[in-house]
Design a protein around this nucleic acid. Structure first.
Length: 886
RNA sequence: GGGCGGUUAGCUCAGCUGGUUAGAGCACCUGCCUUACACGCAGGGGGUCAAAGGUUCGAAUCCUUUACCGCCCACCA
């Protein structure tokens, strides 16, 4: 039965709320997170993936920023000049839509408000939001360099955007052109290919027949969007399709509209699909547009930007596209043009923001020619200059880069960087963010120029983030110090949208890759594996977790629970584990401090003259842990790093070491061991500081008795080879085995917990006997042993329980206490296990091929294992027989 | 249609270049408020490592195929 903490007699559970708030303010006051461009320490730079100003902190941000903070804090501790740049993204479409919705609640329409007024209000709103989300990052302990906070619409960043536009335009890499774009009729803007999602939906294929001119024959086409037939300008067949070659060059009459359309031949048509005849609508389908260009066909736009039909649609003018479809199909049916309707599942493109169905739409847009930019970005990956973690993401990146398409950068919005292009009435263009001066547009009156009404895609500012934030295009000290950066931490969703484009921009404008490592983490899912999202309402609010369990608990739980390169499944009780661990750490520090009894410990030096076996053991384990953690950091395996620390602290340090050095009641702890305990605790605090900065700093302040001391700047523990000792670790394993075996015997035989018992150990060789003898005082507290007798000639006392481990036989005299049936079962069970193992081993060792081919050390190992098993079985058998006689 | 991940205890995951008696946390069972910690301590039960082939003396680990789950890309009207 579990009790609430307040019901227990004691109860000094760690309370993070007060500590975390106080320490974060303390750190800010001391300016610990500011990086100085003039520092001579090597720089280590991370730029934050700027959260959208529409967002409130969710668990995905929690994970993303925890990882970055862990990395930045560790490097800061290792002596780097660590710059973690904070900021936010204006998130064009998302922000404008959200704000417009809010306006609508007030009964205000954006067009009524007017562009200028609208921008004023949305800016105010965006700034309030951005402050909120950035402040939320403070709650989870992020050590961001707040002095350098940037926003993608800051004047400096806008200048970078203009400068980049001009550069690419002058280079011929930005062009304006009529293209089929992804058009969202609800948001009334174009979208880039990467902003479009594909959904499989049930739909229909309508088979419609077109009468061949001057004949009674018909050609039947299949279409998923019949309303677009109003804009048809040809029918096409495959040139090799013998069914139709005779019709090529003739023409058909477009039903209802009665327009004459040529029949053309183009290899684009797949004879196997549908009827093998395709209607060509160049203004409303990207493929048809290409076909139209090849055959010099006219384009007829039949829709308005809001998805209603325009005057080209004749009597359907003004109808919504789907209403028009219905009426048109009805009429086709009535007039005998509709041959059949077939159920058909089709891939429908939808807007990533509002989810409405995208309309391929012919319009004039601005594009960036991407191929030349992609070249160095591909090279960076292939040469190993740019690395993804986990590595397999590089395939995704490469595939996109090598099949890159031009980037549509204009958006029909108001919120964003306005396209820095001004038009004269004759169509001449001038590049400038502000109205050009008379010198900038010789021969034209500046006052008569009009600016392009559109804005740039949000990513057109985000792709400059690694250098625009440090002052580019000015040549600043910051830029020199902090570019290129070191690692980019993000989720896989924006590898194309953002990561890839940053690499391209880095090379084009800075001549160097913006970072060398890209750490891709998973997307947070709920307990059932469903992506957490606001709309589904399955999200967990990280701030609620901070309130309930503390920021440290949130952070360590997330790092422990996020498998490398996979999606973590997170539920509320994921965080209990982290909370418990933080408390455990705090409790063991209380133990050490109580024993220090007010004496100030020496943390940075180790007196190796006064060590016992356990001291040397924990130092060896510590050294190995540091090695492991360092390696995991190098490999970007934070889950493994945090797990290594978790088990070192909980198992090695708390459960074994601290228990081993605990003195008998009323006694003082051995000074040498207390010094080691303190020394190791200090190292633990350092190793864990990146993960759980608050509790570690709090304990550090307590240990040093000073708020002036901090873990922020390290030093990070280093590996001292001399402290590693394999033989010693093996000896400890033997001692642990004895303790564990005695505990198990007592527990399984229901020996009352308070009852002490003698322990007799018969060893098969003297070195183990020596080891156990030398440390017999430790068996008292750990295994409730009264007196210990060890030797090769030790006899089994009457009425004693027994256990057999490698190299030793343990006897626990329990006259009157022993449950004979239970003891029989115990022995029988281990006997069965051992026999199974022996059987398998014997087979293996009887296999001539194994003996002939396996390496000698493997064979030797298996042989000695077999000997050991046989010996144990024999001893177990004897003990069992003896019991039978009771 | 192509590509990439995943499939190990009831749940979430470790298990590196093949040789372990296949591990951890949570959950479960038993006993404990033992002066660091009940957010705890000690002990225990629980797995034919998705399936089938193959390579090998030896496969959870390597190869092939299949199934299922998830993600990404794709112009079949």
């Amino acid at each position: 039965m579990s009790k609430a903490p307040e019901e227990t007699k004691k109860g000094h559970a760690y309370d993070p709320a007060e500590v975390e708030d106080r320490l974060y303010r303390h750190w800010l006051e001391r300016d610990y997170f500011a990086a100085d461009p003039a520092s001579t320490n090597p720089a280590y730079t991370i730029v934050i993936p700027p959260p959208n100003v529409t967002a409130v902190l969710h668990l995905g941000h929690g994970l993303n920023n925890t990882i970055q903070d862990v990395l930045i804090r560790r490097h800061r501790m290792a002596g780097h000049n660590a710059e973690w740049l904070p900021g936010s993204d204006h998130a064009g479409i998302a922000t404008q839509i959200m704000f417009e919705k809010q306006l609508l609640k007030e009964g205000v329409n954006r067009r009524e408000l007017g562009r200028e007024k609208f921008l004023e209000r949305i800016t105010e709103w965006a700034y309030a939001n951005k402050d909120q989300i950035l402040n939320q990052l403070k709650r989870i302990g992020c050590s961001l360099d707040w002095e350098r906070e940037r926003f993608t619409m800051d004047p400096g960043l806008s200048k970078a955007v203009e400068s980049v536009f001009r550069h690419l335009y002058d280079k011929g890499l930005i062009y304006r052109g009529k293209r089929i774009v992804n058009w969202c009729p609800v948001d009334r803007t174009s979208l880039s290919d990467d902003e479009v999602e594909t959904e499989n939906k049930a739909g229909h294929l309508w088979h419609i027949r077109y009468k061949i001119r001057g004949s009674d024959e018909y050609l039947t086409v299949a279409t998923t969007r019949p309303e677009t037939m109003l804009g048809d300008t040809a029918l096409a067949v495959n040139p090799k399709d013998s069914r139709y070659t005779k019709f090529v060059g003739k023409s058909v009459i477009l039903p209802i509209v009665e327009r004459e359309l040529p029949i053309i031949a183009d290899t684009y048509v797949d004879p196997e699909f549908g009827t093998g005849v395709v209607k060509i609508t160049p203004a409303h389908d990207a493929n048809d547009f290409e076909v139209g260009k090849r055959h010099d066909l006219p384009s007829v736009v039949v829709m308005n930007t809001d998805g209603t039909m325009n005057e080209q649609a004749g009597k359907f003018k003004g109808l919504d596209r789907y209403e028009a479809r219905e009426q048109l199909v009805n009429e086709l049916k009535q007039r005998g043009f509709l041959v059949s309707i077939e159920d058909y599942d089709l891939a429908v493109k939808t807007c990533y923001r509002c989810k409405s169905v995208i309309e391929p739409y012919l319009s004039e847009q601005w594009f960036v020619k991407m191929e030349p930019l992609a070249k160095p970005a591909v090279e960076a990956l292939k040469s190993g200059k740019l690395r993804f973690h986990p590595e397999f993401w590089s395939k995704t990146y490469l595939h996109w880069m090598e099949n890159i398409r031009d980037w549509c950068i204009s958006r029909q919005l108001w919120w964003g960087h306005r396209i820095p292009v001004w038009y004269a009435s004759d169509g001449t263009m001038f590049i400038s963010a502000e109205r050009p001066t008379a010198e900038q547009c010789p021969g034209y009156d500046p006052e008569t120029l009009t600016q392009d009404p559109d804005v740039l895609d949000t990513w057109f500012s985000s792709w400059l983030w690694p250098f625009s934030t440090f002052g580019w295009p000015e040549e600043t000290d910051e830029l020199r110090a902090f570019y290129p950066g070191h690692v980019l931490v993000t989720a896989s969703e924006i590898i194309f949208l953002w990561v890839a484009r940053m690499v391209m921009a880095g090379y084009e404008f800075m001549g160097d890759c913006p970072f060398e490592d890209v750490y891709i983490h998973g997307t947070v899912r709920d307990a059932h594996g469903v992506k957490m999202s606001k709309s589904l309402g399955n999200g967990i609010d990280p701030l609620e977790i901070v309130d309930q369990y503390g920021a440290d608990a949130l952070r360590i739980s997330l790092t422990l629970a996020t498998p490398d390169g996979q999606d973590p499944w997170i539920s509320r009780n994921t965080f209990e584990g982290g909370r418990n661990f933080v408390n455990k750490l705090y409790q063991v520090s209380r133990f050490v401090q109580m024993r220090l009894n007010g004496n100030r410990p020496v943390l940075d030096k180790l007196d190796t003259n006064d060590l016992v076996i356990f001291d040397r053991w924990i130092l060896s384990r510590l050294t190995r842990t540091i090695e492991d953690v360092d390696r995991y950091f190098r490999e970007y395996r934070l889950a493994a790093a945090s797990k290594a620390l978790y088990s070192f602290v909980w198992d090695d340090y708390c459960s074994w070491y601290v228990e081993l050095i605990k003195p008998e009641a009323g006694q003082e702890i051995r000074p040498g061991s207390l010094a080691v305990a303190t020394y190791v605790l200090d190292k633990i605090l350092r190793l864990l500081h990146p993960f759980v900065p608050f509790v570690t700093e709090e304990i550090h302040h307590q240990l040093t008795g000073s708020n002036d001391s901090t873990l922020t700047f390290g030093p990070w523990p280093d590996v001292q080879e001399a402290l590693k000792d394999d033989a010693l670790e093996a000896s400890l394993v033997q001692i642990q085995e004895v303790v564990t075996a005695v505990r198990a015997m007592r527990s399984e035989l229901n020996v009352p917990p308070g009852k002490r018992a003698d322990l007799h150990i018969r060893v098969s060789d003297n070195s183990l006997g020596q080891l156990l003898n030398d440390h017999q005082s430790y068996f008292g507290p750990l295994a409730k042993v009264e007196t210990l007798r060890v030797g090769t000639e030790v006899k089994k006392p009457p009425f004693s329980a027994s256990a057999v481990i490698g190299g030793a036989e343990l006897f626990l005299p329990l006259e009157g206490l022993i449950d004979i049936e239970a003891e029989k079962n115990r022995l029988q069970k281990s006997l069965n296990e051992l026999r199974n193992n022996l059987e398998r081993l014997s087979k293996k060792l009887a296999n001539q091929d194994f003996l002939a081919r396996a390496p000698k050390d493997v064979i030797d190992r298996e042989r000695s294992k077999k000997d050991d098993f046989e010996e144990r079985i024999e001893r177990l058998n004897k003990n069992l027989e003896q019991i039978m006689g009771w």
